[in-house]
Structures are given as C-alpha cells and as structure tokens.
Design a protein around this nucleic acid. Structure first.
Lengths: 131, 131
DNA sequence: GCCACGTGCAACCATGAGGTTGCAACTATT
DNA sequence: AATAGTTGCAACCTCATGGTTGCACGTGGC
C-alpha cells in the first residue's frame, strides 16, 4: 500500500521520481487540487467533478498514493482520500536545490579538467563505457 | 525566440506543465545532470554518454528546450546546449507554494460552504478537456 | 433478509511517448 | 574539390499509460 512513505531522502531520488511522474499528468494535478480544496473525498465523489470515469480516478489515486502524495483511509463502506504534503515538500526542496546547483555553475570547471593538453574539443571520448 | 521564455507566472501554470512533463522522464533528468555538470554539450556528445541514440537525445533536448530547461546556440557546425535555471527555479517555487498550501489546509472549509440545501452533487463544469 | 451504494478487480482499447534506423543537407578541414 | 563530422528530417516500431466497460464483493440502511 505504501512505499513512498519510506521517507527516503537518499541521493538516488527514488521518491522524487515517483512524485514527478505522478505530477506530470494534468488530470492527476486537478485531482490533487480538488482533494486539497476539499480536505477529503472519495474516488466516486471526485469522479463526479472530473470528466473521467470513477475507475480512472481510482487508478490515478493509486499512482498518487504510490508517490506518497495522497493517502486514503476507510470509513465505513467508503474510502476517503486526503492530500499528503510531505512528499511534495521534499520534492520541492530537491528541485530548489537542483536549481541552485545549476545557477552556481555558470559553466567551465569540467571543461578545464577534461582537456589537459590543449584540445577544447576532445574527439576521443574515451574510456568510460557508461554503456 | 523560443516559447518557454515567456516568463509566464500566470495561474494556469502553463510552464509548470511543461517542466513537470519534461522532468518526469528519467533519461531527460540524466541528460540535465550531464549538461549541468559539463556546462555545455552537443547532442552527439551527450548521446555518447547515454545508452540511447543521438536522435533520442535530440528529441529529449527538444522537449527540454520547449520547457525552457535548456537552450542551445549554434557554434560552427555544432549546436551546444546548456542548462537554463529560471524555469526550474520557478517550478520549484510553485511547488513549494503548493506544499505550503496543503499544509495550512488541514481540512474543513469545504464542509461548511458545500451543503446548505441537500444536494452535494452538482454536475460541475467540465473545464478544459485535458485530453 | 434484501437492496442500494460504493469499492475492487480484470479485460480490453487506443494513443502517444521513447526509441531506432536511414538518409539528406550543411560546414569545416585537407 | 573531395571528404569527414554534424545536424536535421521522416518513417516506423513498441510498449506503457490513460481511459473505458462490466461485474463480483462488502457494508450499511430499510
């Protein structure tokens, strides 16, 4: 049921992947908006406010849940979902950090350390078989 | 010149959409990492460091460019691409704002304004067809 | 007990995104 | 001029994704 809850701030960014993937879809974003606005809602309810079937909503909620962006608890015969800020927050931080990284890296560094001789255009990319 | 440069912080979040979509793909993220690390690189060079063809890289770069995450300028017979922090930064802010929004919204509000009569199921306005 | 509402599961469909290959066009370098 | 290295198209392939429908299962209200 949960995996993104694995509060993993590790470098690989395994969670970031999930969040970005989930957030990439517009319908999913609308869903989150609705959810954030209402606090709680069931898949059936949400489907009523979107141009898609209930099943589609269920699938989307599953993705969002896997990404840790929402969580649902059972209440009687229905399952109410609610938004879960943590993962989003973490991803926002990650992204801000990345942006900062890019900014403080105008260019160079690598270019200098990559061509000791005098060739700014190394035609022989050599060794590293990154595969 | 391009399009994402349309510094549009408008509500619709037209840019955010592009950035999230672009960032959703892992290959594209690797590409950005490489690019950020080297400062500048051509599609051909980058393809050499990734497990995909040059053409695939070209397509990815096109997506990233459309999202405003990279920009390329011609230098002789080659086209060097470089990372472009602005869009990423904006998106990070947007996301942080959203997260903050979620956090300061434990629930309620809706419950009060939504059920005066007795019918909480209006056929709502299907906004822009997502697809 | 019966019925209605809501969820859960599975099969199925269609499109688009990621990837490939092949080739034409352009720019340097010799 | 001939050639080698790059970029730019375009056709084409495959598979994951978003979406649908149909039906079985649970749970609560009558």
């Amino acid at each position: 049921m949960d995996d993104a809850a694995t509060m993993d701030r590790s470098p690989g960014g395994e969670m970031v992947d999930g969040v970005l993937g989930a957030l990439a879809d517009p319908t999913r974003r609308r869903l989150l908006d609705l959810l954030a606005a209402q606090g709680e809602a069931t898949a059936t309810t949400l489907a009523g406010r979107l141009p898609v079937s209930r099943q589609a909503v269920v699938k989307h909620l599953a993705v969002l849940d896997a990404a840790g962006l929402v969580a649902g608890h059972r209440s009687g015969r229905e399952v109410r979902y609610a938004v879960r800020p943590a993962a989003l927050d973490d991803t926002a931080r990650w992204m801000a950090g990345l942006a900062a990284d890019w900014e403080r890296r105008p260019a160079r560094i690598k270019a200098l350390a990559e061509a000791p001789p005098s060739e700014p255009a190394p035609p022989g990319p050599p060794p590293s078989g990154t595969r």
